[in-house]
Structure formats: structure tokens, C-alpha cells
Amino acid sequence: MNKNDVRLVIFIFIMAISLILVTKIFDSNDPKTALIYYENELIKKIDLSIDKSNEYVIKGFNGDVIVKSKKNMIKVSDEISPLNICSKQGWISSSYEVIVCLPNKILIKIESNQNEFDAVVR
């Protein structure tokens, strides 16, 4: 490694850390909804503000995708794909995080409800 390499490493490091911090700022504590897409089409909305664990079965390209949710968090717990990347990813909880299941064409993202409802009267 020469001097230029070290500079490169420092530069990437600072870039990455600053970007992470910037994204942290965008995260909010508002109630959240998980949106599940299949081939870019919204197929399910899950309210994550409920303090309860839930399990959902979503139809993916290769078969059933099992999604688990709990308060403000969601994950893929089981799916059929060669590398199982999205079930290995585990829980996501911030509005900038996404779970991408390429083989199953499933995308899960979290949206804070800020632009939707603050509350629902029953």
C-alpha cells in the first residue's frame, strides 16, 4: 500500500460515515407502515405501530415468502431463493432501509405515516 491508497481509504471512510449520519437524520420516530411490493406493485400494507408480532405469507416469484412483523420492525423470515439474502438481512426498522428479494421480485420498505394519518378513531 502506498500513500495514495491510504488517502483513498480515508476518503471512502469519511464519505461513508458522513452518509450514514446523514441518513440517520432522516429517520424518524413516527409510526411506521411497511409496504410490500411484488414486481413494483404494492400488494400489502402492514401497520407497524401495533405492539404485536404478526406473520404474513406473501406470494413471491419462487413461492411463498414468510414475513414477520413486530412493533416498528419487519423482516423476511423464510423464502425460496439461491442465496437467501433477504432472509439473512434480518429486521429493518428505519424508513430508509429496504429488504430486496430479487429472486422473488419482492421489495419491502418502511414508510413513516407522517404524510398519512397521525391517528385513527375507531
Binding site: 471512502i12 471512510f13 464519505m15 461513508a16 460515515i17 452518509l19 450514514i20 441518513t23 411490493y37 413494483n40 430508509y96 432501509e97 429496504v98 430486496v100 430479487l102 421489495l107 420498505k109
Partner: peptide, 16 residues
């Protein structure tokens, strides 16, 4: 492919 820009927030971790 997924027409979703959110994944870009994942980039800094990959950079690191």
C-alpha cells in the same frame, strides 16, 4: 429493476 431509490441508503455501509 425495482424502480426504487431507497436502496441507495444502503450504499454507505457497502462503501465501508
Amino acid at each position: 429493476f425495482l424502480n426504487n431509490l431507497n436502496i441507495i441508503f444502503y450504499l454507505p455501509y457497502l462503501l465501508l
